[in-house]
Amino acid sequence: MSQTESIQPITKQWTTICPLDRILPNTGVCALVNDRQIAVFRVGEEEDVYAIENLDPFSKAYVLSRGIVGDHNGIPKVASPIYKQNFSLLTGECLDDLTIKLQTFAAQVVDGQVQVHG
């Protein structure tokens, strides 16, 4: 027997949330997917999109989609608008507090529509 993994109650699937041009380059939006708040970010001018939890673990407010998008040593990140902690968009890790890690979701652009796997 080894450490048991928790099982997600909802089967994940791709959900279309909005057209790509609804997300201005280098900003985020929040989408409601299966009753979860997911922050979706568009990095650069093209079709590079990332999705993480919208809940800011430090303030407990659902606001990460409103943070400033940038990079740290090339890693795309968002800074919480409340207390400015940074989160990697690739892994969900908090770059300022290694004990904190947010859930990430797969995101893609298909035919000009942004989709999230969550």
């Binding site: 201005l24 303030s59 407010a61 606001v63 409103r66 400033i68």
Partner: peptide, 22 residues
């Protein structure tokens, strides 16, 4: 304006002051 909006802190981005509950 489009080229500047992504630069703004959330207060400027929404022309209001964010509070602890968002």
């Amino acid at each position: 304006d489009a080229p500047h909006v992504s630069l703004q802190d959330t207060n400027d981005a929404f022309l209001a002051n964010i509070q602890r509950d968002g």
